[in-house]
């Protein structure tokens, strides 16, 4: 295309915008990472040191969570929007108070098994 004055003005505008200023940090940059989960951490209050003592004592789950999705409350609360279900909290919990349970539901109907396509 033959270049016009409009092309020049437009390109000049792009050239004089520092695109780096458009890059900013944000919460949830990778989107709703809770969707990544296949296993969900569930807290059993009866085993949790924090709950039993009623004090902010153990909180290893909070400390080890790589995604800051476990709160430092009594009892600790999981943020399921961003929890990826990595299971580190469950592994680190000294009293096995955190259980990883599958996310899925039960099947509903039968199909044609072993068919070719």
């Amino acid at each position: 295309m033959v270049r016009t004055k409009q092309d020049d003005a437009f390109e000049k505008n792009v050239a004089r915008t520092i695109l780096a200023s458009m890059q900013t940090p944000a919460v949830g940059e990778a989107g709703n990472t809770g969707e990544w989960r296949t296993m969900r951490p569930i807290l059993h209050n009866d085993l949790c040191i924090v709950v039993k003592s009623g004090k902010p004592t153990c909180h290893l789950c909070w400390m080890y969570c790589p995604e800051i999705t476990v709160s430092r409350e009594i009892p600790p609360v999981f943020n399921y929007t961003y929890c990826k279900g990595c299971g580190i909290c469950a592994t680190e919990c000294p009293t096995k108070a955190i259980e990883m349970v599958p996310e899925k539901e039960a099947p509903s109907c039968e199909g044609n098994e072993g068919g070719e396509f």
Binding site: M1, V2, R3, Q6, D7, F10, E11, N13, V14, T17, L19, M22
Partner: peptide
């Protein structure tokens, strides 16, 4: 005029989505 153009042409730049409107 096209032949004499000194501006380099890029294919597949998405500027509209960044808010640059011609």
């Amino acid at each position: 005029e096209v032949e004499k153009n000194t501006h380099v042409e890029f294919i597949g730049v998405h500027l509209e989505e960044l808010g640059f409107k011609k």
